[in-house]
Amino acid sequence: MTKSELIEILAAKNGHLNHKDVELAVKSLLEQMSWALATGQRIEIRGFGSFSLHYRPPRIGRNPKTGDSVALAAKHVPHFKPGKELRERVNAGLAREKGLDAPTF
């Protein structure tokens, strides 16, 4: 599912909102989430998951073409931890496809 498909689904389910508003809302949500992470804030969505930053210390990397060493500065990378409901539903989906019982946790 892409961002535009998500917008279509949300617009279809919110007949009272016009399409443009749904599109602006989805873009606003993604921008709010990006902004939060870019300013070092966590995002916590119960039943979905949480986003946080993981620290990567500075290191000496290599240019794969020339083999030269390059000093790489410390940085942060985004990290997502799925919430319990998301984990369980994704797993139940797998079990449904395979005709198995959902695994226990």
């Binding site: 599912m1 998500l6 039943g47 539903r89 994704v90």
Partner: peptide
């Protein structure tokens, strides 16, 4: 918004 992402997944 979050529910439809869960449904897809």
């Amino acid at each position: 918004f979050f529910e439809e992402i869960r449904v897809a997944l």
